[in-house]
């Protein structure tokens, strides 16, 4: 009977470990990549807006080179502040499930004015007007494309809303599981609650060790500092977020390991004292 009780206790500890691993992971991702404020702060921290602004200007230069217009035609047609507003709008679309579009009227007006000012003869031919309009359309599309960076924006927006919905349900289910398992462990050890505390410590220690091993594994398998996606601006922000994410995983691992070991020591210490007192 005692052996059966021990087996059941450790099976419950195993369930507790899996639940703790899952809930800790959910907490880390909801406080990082699934958190709009966190992502915005990281973009700010890594000079993302400035980088995208420079990328847009650089892309514009490609078109100016081909268009035959003067290089300075693109100067002052948009500001870093406008880029920041539009990037934040796209982030809001993803995280808040909104469907706002980027307004390019300001760029359109500024560019049109600068082109018209640069042309000696103010009376434009229809063909010239068409060429200017096409050029402005191309520049505005390029701007929007660089800000969004993906044609799957709509899909991402839908995915995020679904993920958040499922994560909320999963988190509640895991929390209930942890509470039930902890109560069951305590019930099995009702004669000696300290054994139950030590068992909870085993669960926390397992979770901590799991996260430490995961962190070491990922850091040895993937060169996070050289991840390159799309361009240096996006890569830099992404690397920073992954680095921070892994830092949180490591921290979580060490905290759970420490808590687990303290619970094991305390549980065993009081258990032995109780046994000793009983013996006397």
């Amino acid at each position: 009977m005692k052996v059966l009780g021990t087996i059941i206790r450790y099976v419950l500890v195993m369930i507790l470990t899996v639940a703790l691993i899952s809930i800790a992971f959910i907490n880390i991702i909801t406080s990082t990549i699934l958190n709009k404020e966190y992502v915005l702060s990281k973009l700010d921290e890594t000079d993302y807006y400035k980088g995208i602004y420079q990328e847009i200007q650089s892309n514009f230069e490609n078109y100016v080179g081909q268009s035959g217009l003067d290089e300075d035609i693109m100067n002052d047609i948009l500001t870093e502040e406008k880029v920041k507003t539009d990037v934040d709008l796209i982030i809001s679309n993803i995280y808040d499930g909104t469907n706002k579009t980027i307004d390019t009227t300001e760029i359109r007006t500024n560019l049109n004015r600068k082109i018209e000012n640069s042309i000696d003869n103010p009376r434009l031919l229809v063909i010239q007007r068409d060429a200017i309009d096409t050029f402005i359309d191309t520049i505005c599309n390029e701007y929007t494309k660089t800000i969004i960076h993906t044609k799957y924006e709509q899909n991402i927006n839908n995915i995020y809303v679904k993920v958040v919905k499922y994560i909320k349900i999963a988190k509640q289910a895991l929390l209930i599981t942890i509470i039930i398992v902890a109560i069951l462990i305590c019930l099995i050890c009702y004669k000696n609650i300290f054994k139950g505390i030590a068992s909870l410590g085993v669960g926390a220690t397992s979770t901590g060790v799991f996260y430490i091993i995961t962190n070491i594994f990922i850091n040895t398998q993937i060169k996070i500092n050289t991840i390159t996606i799309l361009n240096s601006t996006i890569s830099n922000s992404l690397r920073n977020i992954i680095d921070d994410f892994m830092g949180k995983v490591e921290k979580c691992g060490f905290v759970l390991l420490a808590v687990g070991i303290v619970l094991i020591i305390l549980g065993n210490l009081f258990n032995n004292r109780k046994r000793e007192a009983k013996g006397n």
């Binding site: 470990t17 085993v202 060790v209 094991i264 065993n268 210490l269 032995n272 004292r273």
Partner: peptide
């Protein structure tokens, strides 16, 4: 002294069990 020794022994066993559980989860 015997209490400390017993506690230490039990703690080590529990940590080994914890590592074993981690191994099973990873597997």
């Amino acid at each position: 002294h015997s209490n400390v020794r017993e506690t230490l022994k039990a703690t080590i066993i529990h940590i080994i069990v914890a590592l074993f559980i981690t191994g099973i989860v990873i597997w």
